[in-house]
């Protein structure tokens, strides 16, 4: 076991981990931040997406020890300080960007990473950015609409409707 420390959603945390402890295990099991989901555990689905030093990563495909000293943000850090939903979260609600909600934490973290770099993405850029986030429910259109809306753009009538 070795000791690691990091900042998670603005708070300093530390813990004892094994080499093999995944970042998602540390977040969910040690810190009890269960908003980050494990959909596949095989690096495919993106449900476990969090930000490490501002970049989106799959927390099931990173060892906790690699995040020692890093700044981590999870879905629990996404809401506004007063507890109200962030613009992206609110847009997911308004545009029905979720059904079962399992993929949603990862989708929201992927969306905020995109908007951080590219505040007005095109529909195609949004779809490309979500390449590594799988949703079994929505068919993606409403997720794309939510992200368009969150970026302050007109919401397109998307294809295949």
């Amino acid at each position: 076991m070795s000791k690691i420390s990091m900042t998670v959603n603005g708070k300093s945390v530390s813990g004892e981990v094994e080499g093999r402890t995944l970042l998602v295990e540390f977040l969910r099991e040690d810190l009890k931040l269960t908003g980050t989901h494990v959909g596949c555990d095989t690096s495919q689905c993106g449900a476990c997406t969090v930000h490490v030093d501002g970049k989106q990563v799959k927390s099931c495909t990173m060892f906790a020890a690699e995040a020692d000293g890093a700044e981590v943000k999870t879905i629990e850090g996404e809401a506004n300080a007063d507890g109200s939903l962030s613009v992206v979260q609110q847009a997911f609600q308004d545009y029905h960007g979720l059904q079962c909600g399992f993929c949603t934490p990862g989708m929201v973290m992927a969306a905020t990473a995109l908007l951080g770099k590219n505040p007005k993405p095109t529909e195609l850029e949004i779809r490309e950015h979500l390449e590594g986030n799988i949703c079994r429910c929505t068919g993606y259109h409403n997720i794309v609409k939510a992200i368009m809306a969150a970026s302050g753009q007109d919401v397109p009538a998307v294809a295949a409707e």
Binding site: S43, G46, T49, K55, Q56, V57, K58, T61, M62, A110, A113, L114, H129, E131, G132, N133
Partner: peptide, 9 residues
Amino acid sequence: IGDPAVRNR
């Protein structure tokens, strides 16, 4: 390559 999260690592 892959997707944004894969490219970040």
